[in-house]
């Protein structure tokens, strides 16, 4: 089998997710080549052919042009599988490629089983085994699902590619994430509020427990999106990545994007009314309880110690 890996580059840097693509190719026992819109000065450690387009010339974000470049490489390499990360770059470009190639696209693959691909369903509560029916398949990989035991070595044989045309989207630059304020990465204890807190008034309850534990409080995305807690306290792929000694997830279901930001914590406690919530998969202790009763009780008892 031959696989084409699509690496990513942003703001002058090659993204580390390239190693997950390499790990996936290894797991599939496949021959591979790689495609990157990036730069000479940020090449991946990869022993294979790298089709490299210059980001300065064709734009870091320019789906129409990237699509054309990639389709040209696909025509040359004739891979059976084209593999992206399931990331803001990957889930945007992959369907464009799949549509042009009349190929099946299987999103957010977490595992493989022979020629079948496994993907999550319903917030990772269930899984689905999917079989593509087309000669070529486009795949996006869930972040963190495939890893390498050792850092990859080697340097690529670079094959430069270029494209004509401009595309229909105009890229107006990046806007940095909000800066300053609380630095959750320094906290030894983080107590996070999820949608299960129910109403903004209950943030105080989470903050009080954090204080009793001499830590900081954080939040999952819906709590931030609702404006109950500021964005700087959001934990997850589009917030901060933390690894405190103790992480208490209160009323958080454990979506992959939240887990990505906290699963490296040393000790994880989840408080949830749903015994089957996916957060249970990473929690050292799952307390099945209504946080509105449990959290104040726990805070009181800790304060009394």
């Amino acid at each position: 089998m031959k696989i084409l890996l699509v690496a990513e580059y942003r703001d002058g840097k090659l993204l580390g997710s390239v190693n997950e693509l390499i790990a996936f190719a290894g797991k599939m026992g496949a021959e591979s080549a790689m495609f990157l819109v990036g730069s000479d000065s940020a090449l991946p450690a990869y022993a294979g052919t790298l089709y490299l387009a210059d980001a300065a010339a064709c734009g870091e974000f320019n789906p129409d042009v990237h699509k054309q470049l990639l389709l040209d490489v696909v025509a040359r390499e004739q891979p059976e599988m084209i593999v992206f990360s399931h990331s803001s770059y990957g889930w945007d470009l992959a369907p464009r490629i799949a549509c042009a190639l009349k190929a099946a696209q299987v999103s957010e693959v977490v595992d493989v089983e022979g020629d079948a691909l496994i993907v999550p369903v319903c917030n990772a509560k269930l899984r689905r085994t999917v079989k593509p029916k087309t000669g070529q398949t486009v795949v996006t990989l869930q972040a963190g699902a495939f890893g390498l035991a050792d850092a990859p070595v080697g340097s690529p044989t670079v094959e430069k590619v270029a494209a004509a045309g401009t595309g229909k989207l105009e890229f107006g630059g990046y806007e940095a994430a909000e800066q300053g304020g609380v630095d959750l990465t320094k906290a030894e204890v983080i107590v996070s509020a999820g949608r299960g807190i129910g109403k903004p008034e209950n943030v105080a309850m989470i903050a009080a427990l954090a204080k009793a534990l001499k830590g900081e409080y954080g939040a999952s995305r819906p709590v931030v999106d609702s404006g109950w807690v500021e964005h700087k306290r959001q934990v997850g792929t589009t917030g901060q990545s933390v690894a405190p000694k103790l992480y208490l997830a209160c009323g958080i279901s454990g979506a992959i994007q939240h887990l990505a930001g906290m699963k490296k914590s040393e000790f994880i406690v989840a408080i949830n009314t749903d015994k089957d919530a996916p957060i249970g998969d990473v929690a050292d202790v799952l307390v099945v309880a209504d946080l509105k009763q449990f959290v104040p009780m726990l805070t009181e008892k800790i304060q009394a110690l």
């Binding site: 099946a104 689905r128 050292d284």
Partner: peptide, 17 residues
């Protein structure tokens, strides 16, 4: 262009308390 072969519950890995 694709079909579902099977839907299943993932094995509980954590083994947490």
């Amino acid at each position: 262009r694709q079909e579902t072969a099977k839907l299943f519950f993932p094995e509980k890995k954590g083994g947490g308390l």
